[in-house]
């Protein structure tokens, strides 16, 4: 793939001592494009993502973002460059209300340098209603919201701040079918707004419905990288667990 892509990772290696967690992974995200990144526990998904958003530095390899080579050393740097990562347990502060969560770390100030609460209320409500998320008040604590609504807020926030690439970790894990559908709608909205996303999961079912492309990691290597139309869900499922030797186990499970 080319440098025209929004994100272009080339030959990424990551060692943790003796553990070779990523063994030369190439990974691209177009613009706009939703990429489903799947793999079993320990496949290297989180490690790859953490290299992209500056939590880890790759042992070897290059990361290009918007056509420029980048070496992010902190999450703040990738955030500033336009990469927003929504980790399930790291997205929102439960005991804080919606408006304060929405603007956490980037609070609007009035002329006195104090929080512009009016702007915070207005903009957070606008952001949510633009996505079709109906919430009665921006003063509601996040603790009171459902998992789907929380994902919605995190996504609306990413839209509001105009990030280019949003990384979502298991976006529909623990959600009902109805709520998952809502989250898929939010992700579609991201794309309609010209943004790209990476959806991470160990279950292909979770990301298949909205992904344009599917990338599968196994033991630190990329084993599938195909447009969704070209690949069947079952094929991906097999690839995730690794075909050989597991036949007996599959019988047991079925």
């Amino acid at each position: 793939m080319s440098d025209n892509n929004l994100l272009h990772c080339e030959n990424i290696h990551k060692y943790f001592g003796q553990v070779h967690a990523l063994e030369g992974v190439d990974f691209d995200v177009g613009q706009p494009e939703v990429v489903g990144l799947v793999g079993d526990n320990g496949a290297g998904k989180s490690t790859l993502i953490k290299c992209i958003c500056g939590i880890f530095q790759p042992t070897k390899g290059e990361i290009h973002f918007k056509g420029e080579e980048k070496e992010f050393t902190t999450p703040q740097e990738s955030l500033q460059a336009g990469i927003e990562s929504i980790q399930q347990d790291q997205a929102l502060v439960e005991d804080m209300d919606i408006k304060r969560n929405f603007f956490l770390g980037r609070e609007p100030k009035n002329s006195l340098g104090l929080l512009d609460l009016k702007e915070m209320r207005q903009a957070s409500m606008d952001g949510l209603s633009d996505m079709g998320l109906e919430i009665r008040s921006p003063d509601v604590n996040v603790r009171e919201l459902s998992g789907g609504q929380r994902q919605g807020i995190a996504i609306a926030r990413a839209l509001h701040f105009n990030f280019d690439l949003i990384i979502l970790d298991e976006p529909t894990n623990n959600l009902s079918i109805k709520e998952s559908k809502k989250v898929y709608e939010y992700i579609q909205q991201l794309k309609q707004n010209g943004l790209s996303a990476i959806l991470i999961s160990h279950a292909i079912q979770e990301v298949y419905p909205v992904s344009d492309r599917i990338v599968v990691l196994r033991n630190g290597e990329k084993i599938i990288d195909q447009d969704r139309e070209e690949v069947e869900m079952e094929e991906v499922e097999k690839a995730i667990v690794g075909g050989e030797g597991d036949e007996d186990l599959e019988h047991l499970l079925l």
Partner: peptide, 14 residues
């Protein structure tokens, strides 16, 4: 509030 409510989230939001 964020530091005590969810340290990781606060860190991630800068």
């Amino acid at each position: 509030f964020a530091a005590g409510g969810n340290f990781e989230a606060a860190l991630a939001r800068g």
